[in-house]
Amino acid sequence: MNYIFGTWHWAISGFLIGLTMLILTYFGKSFGMSSNLRTMCSMAGAGKFSDFFKLDWREQKWSLAVVLGAFVGGFIAFYFLSDGSGVNINPETIAQLQTLGIDAPNGKLMPDAIFSVATLQSPKGFAILLLGGLLIGFGTRYAGGCTSGHAISGLSNLQLPSLVAVIGFFIGGLAMAHYILPLIFKTA
């Protein structure tokens, strides 16, 4: 049963993610997660301050249902389909993280150094999470999509703008991982 409770093989995972996109296409919709952030802003009344949020969020209910399902899916996978044997990353990566003061996974999905409740309560820890969120929210809306909308849907449809966006994802990601993260965590 290890093939269910352990890490799913990349080929199976990738196929099922591609299938999710195709299922939503078959339902007459498109696969994109970040647009829900815009919908949520609209629901909160942001339309009063910017026309960008003047949309009828009821038309996006289907997408909110996907997101709510994803939340439940995360819950099911974590509490009922995991045996704690996963997240076996490269030992080299673990050693490298150690020099930054970031704990090894040992089956955890997320490092305590960034996501524990204690970290969350420190000003620096809180600022990192908030800044990460700001970049994700602002960047995805500016680029008109995220990993699902551009890297999967857009590239699957051979869209040049999506290729440019994905190149951007990697420019930003590589700069953060190689140059900025060490600056943030080395002194911690």
Partner: peptide, 14 residues
């Protein structure tokens, strides 16, 4: 696409 993508990439890796 390039600027928005880069900003998102920074957040993604952070």
């Amino acid at each position: 696409y390039i600027i928005g993508g880069t900003l998102f990439g920074l957040g993604w890796a952070l």
